[in-house]
């Protein structure tokens, strides 16, 4: 019997131990603010959430492209049009309304793009943080409300997105590190949207850089990168080479990537079995 493997078949998903990703509330402070129907801005380590009457109306994170980048990258709105809207309506905090009323952006398009960007930034803002959050009462964003989102819905979605990433590939390394193609020769064809992400992988850019370059929500890039990592196509760039000290004693703790294994795997990187072993090793380490 001959086994025919379609070139598009991705390797089967490795079994993954299910860990609870829900747990306690993402931000007890945010839930309190929702309960008291607060208006203002919540400043967290990885970005900000704007609240109006206890609902989230806007979110920003340095890790995600802003609405301006998302709207102008595809050419639907030019940078001049955006600047004019901010200049004309920024003070009144009605930039969103102005974009629609002046015919620059359709109402539905603004809602789709802005709501997508809100959930996108909130995913990072509500991510693990080691610094205390602050809330400034009264502040409103200059864009104005587009489509307010209840805090509970935002938290549910953020938890669901974490689980989604974990299910695709449990190692979060590709979320934030500079990326490289794992092995060009073994690459199967990838879907067009993943191809666009792959085209930006250059050993320097991170997921956030790629999202900005493509004008695409950052979570979408994370999903595609995890899929590419699961398929063994993309991996993180190795850290800058360490200097070699032959006289020095070997380190007391074994390194997380034991060198004998790397040496064993190094000679023929094109061998698909080696790629499989690498993915197995990565998956085991990520558990």
């Amino acid at each position: 019997m001959t086994l025919v493997r379609s070139p598009r078949t991705l390797p089967p998903r490795l079994p993954v131990r299910h860990r609870p990703v829900g747990g306690p509330a993402l931000s007890p402070m945010l839930q309190r603010l929702a309960a008291e129907r607060a208006t203002g801005v919540l400043l967290r380590e990885r970005g900000t959430l704007y609240l109006c009457d206890g609902q989230v109306v806007h979110a920003e994170s340095p890790e995600t492209p802003g609405l301006d980048v998302l709207l102008t990258t595809g050419g639907g709105l030019d940078a001049e049009g955006w600047r004019e809207a901010v200049a004309q309506a920024g003070e009144r905090r009605r930039v969103g309304r102005y974009l629609v009323d002046s015919g620059r952006v359709a109402e539905g398009a603004l809602e789709l793009c802005h709501t997508g960007a809100l959930f996108d930034a909130a995913f990072f803002v509500l991510g693990p943080s080691s610094a205390p959050a602050r809330f400034r009462y009264g502040d409103a964003h200059w864009l104005g409300a587009v489509r307010p989102v209840p805090v509970a819905a935002l938290e549910r979605e953020t938890v669901r997105r974490r689980a989604l990433l974990h299910r695709i590939w449990p190692d979060p390394a590709t979320d934030s590190a500079p990326l490289i193609r794992a092995d060009r020769r073994a690459e199967p064809p990838v879907p067009a949207r993943q191809e666009a992400v792959l085209g930006q992988v250059d050993g320097v850019r991170t997921a956030a850089d790629i999202s900005r370059a493509l004008g695409r929500p950052a979570f979408h890039t994370l999903v595609d990168l995890r899929r590419l990592a699961a398929a063994g196509i993309v991996t993180t760039a190795p850290p800058a080479p360490r200097r070699h000290h032959p006289d020095r004693m070997p380190p007391a703790h074994p390194s997380p990537h034991p060198d004998p294994v790397s040496a064993l795997l190094a000679p023929s990187p094109a061998d698909p079995d080696v790629a499989l072993l690498r993915r197995l090793r990565d998956a085991l380490e990520a558990l």
């Binding site: 398009a109 789709l112 793009c113 949207r193």
Partner: peptide
């Protein structure tokens, strides 16, 4: 599927 002028998957 919805065609948009910005990058989306809606």
């Amino acid at each position: 599927f919805v065609r948009t002028t910005f990058d989306s998957s809606v």
